[in-house]
């Protein structure tokens, strides 16, 4: 599936929810399911400091595809990270850099990505793209 197809899939999943609490219930479940990253990987250089909750991101390139794992102290943030990883994992650095992540906006979660939201998510998306960019040779 392409990045765009994965985004469309998430948008259609979210269109089934009637209200905010259902959406968040789903996001929280995603957050709970997301594997934690090991404590020894929670180092300064992987840390994206948000004002309220800290986020750690680990990026690797495997067989020409990006592979991300991430963690956050806040479960809702983790759930949204889960969505981002689902969209971006196993994609080439080039397609990651080129694609616009519009699904966050389309499912109504853009407030979490605002730079002033201070949960580290905006910084994380930027870091995911920068890490991909570093792997374009």
């Amino acid at each position: 599936m392409t990045i765009e197809e994965k985004q469309q899939e998430i948008i259609s999943e979210f269109s089934m929810f009637d209200d905010w609490m259902e959406k968040y219930e789903y996001i929280i479940d995603l957050g709970k399911d997301l594997p934690l990253i090991e404590n020894e990987l929670k180092t300064e250089d992987r840390l994206i400091e948000g004002c309220q909750s800290r986020v750690w991101l680990e990026s690797k390139m495997i067989d020409g595809k990006m592979n991300y794992s991430a963690d956050s102290e806040a479960i809702i943030t983790k759930g949204i990270i889960g969505l981002l990883i689902r969209v971006l994992n196993n994609e080439t650095p080039k397609s990651i850099v080129e694609n616009d992540l519009h699904f966050i906006h389309d499912i109504g979660l853009q407030e979490h990505l605002s730079p002033t939201r201070a949960n580290g998510l905006a910084g994380m998306v930027k870091r995911m793209k920068i890490d991909a960019l570093k792997n374009i040779s």
């Binding site: 905010w20 609490m21 968040y24 929280i28 309220q52 809702i76």
Partner: peptide, 14 residues
Amino acid sequence: GLHPFDIGTLLDKQ
């Protein structure tokens, strides 16, 4: 076990 940010976000939506 809960992060204040998560609680605040869910209260907001209510």
